[in-house]
Design a protein around this nucleic acid. Structure first.
Lengths: 333, 333
DNA sequence: GTCTCACATTACATCGTTGTAATAGGGAGG
DNA sequence: CCTCCCTATTACAACGATGTAATGTGAGAC
């Protein structure tokens, strides 16, 4: 049987509350008493019951992290950062997968409190259809990335500007027929809209006419889907001079297809991604990408979330994370 | 303020316990009463307090998943499978990172109960130094992969046999100078020992003399570390005919180094990995690897864990997951 | 030697849910 | 019409930790 405060108290010859005081350190405890209690805790291998503490305090010390696709390296890297930063702040992390399902995104936001979590960090994909009836109190939520409606605190990279800059960078190597991969066929994700917008803005700045045949759609943002989409595209279209993929994962899939078809990168086509995922750095050829500090995202997201959890009064806040264009071998002039 | 059973009960004109009965469905509730209660729950947007339930029931509905390095694609894919299977079984998943730190592995195993979790799925790296004093009651634990000491239920792939078969497969293309990448310099991980053992067994079967200069060490099992280790190795040694990396992540790093040095794969050297990670399928060239069903690992791990959580009596059980050698472009003869 | 006052410690109640044991209600059988 | 019994429902306590308010204890001042 597991030891409780009561057991520790009995063994130390004090009251349960004193044991609690020793643990929490808010109420002062005299030196000798503290020692006796600490020794009793050690002897009994006492571990506090977090359910009980959570019930009493109304806080569980757990935050939720909800990502669209847990299998991607990007998710993995974000999760790692969040877990590490959360741990530093004394929080555990519960992970959820939304599968890009707007219904599940809504459910997690509104039902977060059921899940034993104090707050939620959510990387939404759609989340527009009035995800939240105004008036329903939301649990503390921080969104990661782009959204179509501002519903909560948010940490983001300026996808529009980054996509624009990346497109300009690709053009700087003299290429003009620049394709993008990642446009969705059906409902556009907020991220896709931003990145496509940045791309188009760049074309306009460059005086390059829009060409719809350079928009390659790809419904799932996975290597497999990207590889297949690009393969089909190249069956019917000439090879563009450059290819800007909306994520590194898609770029990795694209590189494979290009290699299989004998299209040389970057000689025949420049390729770029977005996210600066580890595997992109080691792709063949190493992948040009939009880089940003994932640890900073985690730090900021947690900061916002913790502030929100302790004080509901702030308005909605935005934190922008800097990005940079990292040119690697896949786009060398 | 959030609604409780008491509020629902008042609104439905019944006692709190009846509301509980409606939710849990063990104790029968008459039709009309059930309807009134359900309506009241809906009207109040009632969500049960899981801390309270956890306190009362002694079970939180949360399991822990501890992996050495959350940033790897392998971790991501395992996490995805575990989360999905756990969700089907009504469990949430809390993730932890051990950073290959044996101390942290121990801590998670022994302290699991503090973390608000009912059980733990742990992918250990070291875990040998009497991780657990015999006699200290462990929380329900299922281990993933190889261990040096059998401490708990375990789900694993036969790394020894798989490594042996992979080595044989590489040899079948006529190559004899087969190197391995992933040997650790300091304390060997259980996994490294198994895979190195399988490799050596294959060499013996093939009548190839051991050659220590073909063991390339690499302390961290990451692409960066692998790329660097291999680069240094090739500065001082001739190019082997084949390279068996102990994980796909390392193989991806190796492919990058080989490409940078102008060593052609598979013409000059065959490369193989282990884990069948998504990004390996789309590597350039696509990566030969040891494949196994990650969903099956998740299913079995959860089955063992759930059985262990409900009944502590079973002895230690082992579940072996089948593997297969998948030959892709990186090792074509 | 007595009286304060400050501080350490304690008793009690409470967080929300659910098992246990007791109660109420209603129909069947005598 | 009364008793009995079965089922639906209820009252109460308990899970373990901690805030509140009250109590106890000591030193210091007169």
């Amino acid at each position: 049987m597991r030891a409780t405060v009561k057991d520790v108290a009995r063994r130390a010859g004090v009251s349960p509350k004193t044991v609690s005081n020793v643990m929490n350190g808010i109420v002062p405890v005299s030196g000798p008493t503290r020692l006796r209690v600490e020794q009793a805790m050690a002897e009994l291998d006492y571990v506090p019951n977090l359910s009980a503490r959570g019930l009493r305090n109304g806080r569980s010390g757990v935050i939720g992290l909800a990502l669209p696709d847990l299998a991607t390296p990007f998710s993995a890297e974000i999760a790692q950062s969040i877990v590490e930063v959360a741990h530093e702040q004394g929080f555990s992390v519960q992970i959820e997968e939304t599968g890009s399902d707007p219904h599940r995104e809504r459910e997690l936001m509104t039902r977060a409190r059921a899940n034993l979590i104090d707050g939620l960090i959510l990387n939404p994909v759609v989340l527009k259809e009035s995800a939240v009836q105004v008036g329903v109190a939301l649990p503390p939520v921080v969104l990661l990335g782009e959204v179509t409606q501002q519903l909560a605190d948010r940490v983001f990279v300026d996808s529009f500007a980054a996509a624009r800059d990346m497109t300009l960078a690709l053009a700087r190597t003299g290429r003009r027929r620049i394709a993008v991969l990642g446009v969705n066929r059906g409902r556009q994700s907020a991220t896709a809209i931003q990145r496509a917008g940045g791309y188009e803005a760049a074309l306009q700045m460059l005086g390059i006419a829009k060409d719809k045949s350079l928009l390659i759609s790809c419904d799932r943002w996975t290597p497999a889907s990207a590889a297949e989409s690009l393969d089909k595209y190249l069956d019917a279209n000439p090879v563009p001079e450059a290819l800007f993929c909306f994520t590194d994962s898609m770029a990795i899939g694209a590189l494979n297809t290009l290699w299989k078809r004998g299209v040389r990168v970057p000689d025949d086509i420049a390729v770029a991604g977005f996210d600066d995922v580890i595997d992109g750095r080691f792709a063949v050829p190493s992948l040009t990408t939009v880089s940003f500090d994932k640890r900073a995202i985690a730090t900021e997201a947690l900061r916002l979330l913790i502030e929100r959890m302790s004080d509901r009064s702030h308005g909605q806040r935005l934190v922008e994370i800097a990005y940079s264009i990292v040119e690697r071998d896949s786009s060398r002039g």
